[in-house]
Nucleic acid binder design. Sequence first.
RNA 1: GCCUAGGUGGCGGAAUUGGUAGACGCGCUGGAUUCAAAAUCCAGUUUCUUCGGAAGUGCGGGUUCGAUUCCCGCCCUAGGUACCA
Length: 1001
Amino acid sequence: MEYNFNEIEAKWQKYWAKNQTFKAENTSDKPKFYALDMFPYPSGAGLHVGHPLGYIASDIFSRYKRHKGFNVLHPQGYDSFGLPAEQYAIQTGQHPAVTTETNVNTYRKQLDKIGFSFDWSREIRTSTPEYYKHTQWIFTELFNAWYNKAADKAEKIETLVALFEANGTENIQAVCDEDVVDFTASEWSAFSELKKQQVLSKYRLTYLSETEVNWCPALGTVLANDEIINGFSERGGHPVVRKKMMQWSMRISAYAQRLLDGLQTIDWPQPLKDAQTNWIGRSQGASVKFKVDGSSSGVEKQDFEIEVFTTRPDTIFGVTFMTLAPEHELVSKIVTEEQKEKVEAYIQATAKRSERERMADVKTISGAFTGAYAVHPFTGENIPIWIGDYVLASYGTGAVMAVPCGDQRDYDFAKHFDIEIKNIFEGVDISEGACEDKTAKIANSDFLSGLNVNKATKLAIYEMEQRGFGKGKINYRLRDAVFSRQRYWGEPFPVYYKDGMPKMIDKQHLPILLPEVEKYLPTEDGQPPLGNAEVWAWDCATAEVVSCDKIDNKTVFPLELNTMPGWAGSSWYFNRYMDANNPNEFASKEALDYWKEVDLYLGGSEHATGHLLYARFWQKFLYDLNYVPVEEFAKKLINQGMILGTSAFMYRIDGFDFNGGKNGDVIFLNEKSIFISKGVTNNNSVISDFFDGYLKNQPNNVIELNKDNWKIEFKLTPIHVDVSFVNASNELDIEAFRNWREEYKKAEFITESGKILSSGEDLGEEKYIVGREVEKMSKSKYNVVNPDSICEEYGADSLRLFEMFLGPLEQSKPWNTAGISGVHSFLKKLWRLYANANNFKGDAGEPSKEELKVLHKTIKKVQEDIENFSFNTSVSTFMIAVNELGALKCTKKEILEPLLILISPYAPHITEELWSKLGNEQSIATAPFPVFEPSHLVESAKEYPVSFNGKMRFKLELPLDLSAKEIENIVMAHEKTQDQLQGRTPKKVIIVPGKIINIVG
RNA sequence: GCCUAGGUGGCGGAAUUGGUAGACGCGCUGGAUUCAAAAUCCAGUUUCUUCGGAAGUGCGGGUUCGAUUCCCGCCCUAGGUACCA
């Protein structure tokens, strides 16, 4: 009986769905295990082979945990709000909800074919009202909360109001805007309602503020940094300007320290933790204010102050100049007439450089003197103020107190511009470079002289605070996150505006449904797409969304026009799966208390600072308000590597190029549909033959060349070609290519042997070889491979094994199906092993010692591998086991049955089938994992490697119970040893019993 | 520049605490079976070699009886962009 994988896989997929085999219960005597994948965005291109990599790994782990007796929650869903559906809507008018539905259905079909053990009863989509009503509710909770530093947690805004009513701002320790003003309790109660709201908005965890954005007027939208190339939009090439916009922000900075501290408590990859640590960017030091000396540069500049942040306040006596970022707002105010031209030229030059470029380039030193001076707060000396692009505006305060003796970049800057370098370190030579060694003692620094770094830092801060120009401060690079998007396809804010102040809509009226619009573009006056909605106003009296023309600003008010960003829905979805169908709450307390957190979270490292940081932030917030029982949502996280595609290239001959195209010696062909095989693109005889042919076809042969003196090359353009037209030997299916597009119908080819095929001519024995390159897998590169065809040709079990067999999970690797036949023939061998065992029924007899040894070494290895997420080596182990059992002609049920359980997490369909053929009536899914018995692996002899100076020369089988001395005697007497030594006496013989023998000398 | 990960046959990769480098699979070569093909099975396959051996895990050093593994310096590839002020 043949291994008919199509039939078997369909059968068991149906069985699992019908019997709800993988449905997780919210109450159980079993221990719980929650395995989660980072859910996909359902794109139009469908699932590609990179997606399942992580899903298969988490599925293996989930199935393993079921065998180990756990109640496993392994859900899946869709992050279904997003830009591609909106772009498609703009182009075609198709409603994004319709596109999304279609794409989700495609994904579901593809996922089902791979045999994942998902609990589909818990499927979620972030774009459904049932889901986003809770996203909206969490937003209102953030609005109605503030961060109490005294309690070090978020609290309801009511507690802040109570404090204001009692004592005003006295003793309030809150994370808030910089510009809050103090007031007393009686002042607070005298404030108008509007004024009170204005004050509170400076404390709320989400708030409206003017934020600088990259605005593209032509596209009517805001662009991300990497959507901009040299000041123009990537798509369309339109100009982009910096513009301030009123937007919602999330006060994530309140959680900076806790987000940092929390990293200590979770088992996440170190590189990912590093990325978050760096993103948060904590640094401890002092904030110091320097006054600008008006007398040096004009009286009107007297009032200006430059605030800097320094991590080395102890080196303040070494300050000999200041550097401002060229974009710093003070630059234009303090620059003197004489320096104005130079400074402006420098600012213009800097504006063209990206921040990355400015940071990476430590060799080029550039800057300009503003002509103005600051006053050193301790010495009263005048110090020059410079601008330099090594100081970034977005970093700290955008200004630096430069200490050239203690910072290499300041040092290089000072040297370059011949600025004074003052040495404030005891016995340190700074003639060659700055002293960045923190053990150096401070000298030449008034009251700080003779102190070490720690003491000097503390004293410097104390003195600054006493004299009122500085204070100790911890600085974070982490900035509050902008939460508004000028898009249609996202969660609408449950917000309306009364007297210009935002008001939240009550939980009981949620969800606020995304309104219908005529078109998905921004309005003509630059409003977001929701500005096109006709029914988009809030009626407070009836608590309904009503038509915009009813707006009277008394009971009917305009609704918010922005929508939420992509990360809103994904910042809490892991909690939703715990109780996915709860209509009232985001999840019940019972469900949350039972599942608590994700035990294993799998996904790509590209989400390190986006999704994963914001999700941790929301979780901590929900924890503070007692909505969730744990502060970190994922105990363990594993990054899966990216699967790269292998693009195929055709080489189109556009013309001829003489002498490398110098002097304009290029001839272009009129017909541009001739493709040349990769191997002959530089072949001289092919080129000259082709050129001769070209000359003959010219009606008036005007070209006369002495070819001996000319070097002719083809002018080629590599064209991406669909990888499905190319076989494993890089040979092109010419028919498929000709039928691909109208323009290629008449294509001609120069084959690998140099033969010219005219249009329509068959290949015959000839071959066209394409070029190959490994790049990111993407639809536009025609290198996307989806799993469907592999499932059809080899089956889902082969796909699963193969994706795991490719290599370590965390490493990125190119997709190459060359090895898939290997895992497929393994499955066929497995099938045959059982077919030969009493026609799948297995024999009852006692297993032999050898058979037990094979089984138990496999149990040991596979269990270790799964627990170390080393799935690739398990697949090898299965192959070895099946090869060995095949060689032993094993037919014993006692061996074959446990072996199936070992393989079943990896290849669930074939193992279910063989399991039932062995006579089992229940699914294999919850069969207990075999227990490893070490006694089966005990050996009595060992084949020792005998090494000479560490190099293995021959092997010698010896009993394991020999002592080191006995081994030495046997080895030294051995003839091969004498051969190796050739009469020399060994200096030393090292024997590690059970391991190695090494003879030195 | 810096941080992180990585660099092993023709290819994907294995070697779990320093102890037989190249497991397993692909590909390739030869053979068996077959009218033939597919499928299957068997043998071989790091390189060089005077067939005794010798060299070999990005490069150069070091520690060690012994290094893919540990240390120092460097090169390359991928991802991230900090620290500092």
